[in-house]
Amino acid sequence: MKAFTIHFSFEFLAGLRNRTLLMMNYLFPLGFYVFAGAMMTGINPDFRGEIIPAMLTFAILSATILGLPGPLVETREGGILRSYRINGVPAASIMTIPAFSTAIHLVLVGAVITVTAPFVFKAPLPQNWPAYMLIYLLMVFACSGLGSLIGVISGNSRQTILWSQLIYLPSMLLSGMMVPADLLPGPFVKMGHLLPAAYVMQSFQSLAYGREALYEPLPGMLILLAGGVIAFGLALYLFSWDSHNNTRRGHPSMAALALLPYILGALLLV
């Protein structure tokens, strides 16, 4: 436990010292929040109702899908994981501690957005605070799992960017963050539900804000939970200490199994 605490405190500080992580954890989401908040509420005043859930979801996607995989690939390719391994650092710590510290950064970013949005953009606050926080943490869990999995299966930084963008861009466009889901054509709504952000937006709508949504919130939240569990499980299973050494169990293509809950959700809920 002592080792975990020391490792966590270092990882948390690294999220502030490392400029790339600082950008992904704080500057990019908060900068986008200010910019998109001003622009979108100017164009469409109804966006005020969406701004908090949309910006929280954006922050999570930035920190986890864009921010988490790169350092994992760099630590493996740079020989850091070999040093960790030889000094008894368990693979589970290498997987969970960056995700956990990213979650704490995201709680701080989420708090800034939640506290300032009503004053800056006249955004309505959620009605159900426990549900609001639970949905937020479920999204962090599900996306951290996917981010970790991308870091595990990517052989280099270019692959990391490719896989990250394959999740990030459709999430931005089709989840209901930027365009409400009820305005999207049916097939695009289904496509959006192949990724976690769409379930988060629907859950925020129905459970946290008490608005009408496309489906009941519980199945969507269970899908997020299952998605996170499967993604972290696969990340641990496929974890490799050294890409130049045959230590990986299973083929990287197994990572596609992490999308199974979302595929089922898209088929059964939407």
């Binding site: 690294a14 490392n18 850091i80 070999r82 030889i86």
Partner: peptide, 12 residues
């Protein structure tokens, strides 16, 4: 063990 190709995180 002192590894030939070992390293540590930049920001530690």
């Amino acid at each position: 063990v002192q590894l030939q190709t070992g390293s540590l995180p930049d920001y530690i």
